[in-house]
Design a protein around this nucleic acid. Structure first.
Lengths: 119, 119
DNA sequence: AAATTATTTCGTTATTTCGCGAAATATCCA
DNA sequence: TGGATATTTCGCGAAATAACGAAATAATTT
């Protein structure tokens, strides 16, 4: 996973509102289908409106939430797909797993420059 | 791990320069001591100057790098300790592990609100 | 004590981000 | 076709952030 993309994901999660959205979608029921291509898309799940309702408490959709969801999507952490009038949100588990692995395995994608860097 | 703190960590890693610093420190040799209190501190390792040199290529310390290191430290991801004239940097593995676990275990710290959120 | 080295803090400027409301777009229903 | 619903895009002002150089602080050497 390239560093640019990784930073983008971390950045997306580095906002209280977005992290809240992300958590909600993770604990929420979000059945997904995996295409032959490997692409993952939500089969059912909360709409952008549901998310907005849960996060803000308001029953009207908020442009701010829409914007945050877009940012999470651009980072690759969310999938969003139109279903009629609604947009269904789902977690991109593959991306989340990759990010978790990144944190768990130090320097897996970096040439080892250690040894000549200590004082 | 509380959500506020988690977002702070993600935010700290969500900048290309800081992620670069973080990666450098992870692959670099960074022996640490664990105190009786559980506190972790670097025993040896790259100084702020070493980090700056590696990241920017310049041989002079840069206030920008100093600032980024401070931010990583405030997020709890780095430990910084004075050793004579220098400041030694080290990774706070405990915090990194906690962050990795957070990503790996969906909703471990969130009450399950699923079931009534799908359309 | 003065000079030197390593690093942080401060003040400034340019850029980005956040939240908001209004307008635009897309889809469905009558 | 004309609404109604769901969502995104646009434009705005306020607040946060990033990079930079200069000054300040801390520890070491002479």
């Amino acid at each position: 996973m390239d560093e640019e993309k990784t930073a983008l994901m971390f950045r997306a999660l580095g906002d209280a509102t977005r992290l809240h959205i992300f958590n909600f979608l993770r604990v929420c029921c979000c059945p997904v289908a995996v295409e032959d291509t490997g692409e993952v898309r939500p089969v059912a799940g909360p709409t952008v409106g549901d998310v907005c309702c849960h996060i803000t408490g308001a029953d009207r959709i908020n442009s701010t939430i829409s914007h945050h969801i877009k940012e999470l999507r651009l980072a690759g952490l969310l999938t969003v797909e139109r279903r009629g009038k609604n947009m269904l949100c789902g977690i991109n588990h593959k991306a989340v797993d990759a990010l978790a692995a990144y944190l768990a395995e130090p320097g897996a994608d970096e040439p080892d420059t250690g040894g000549d860097c200590c004082t």
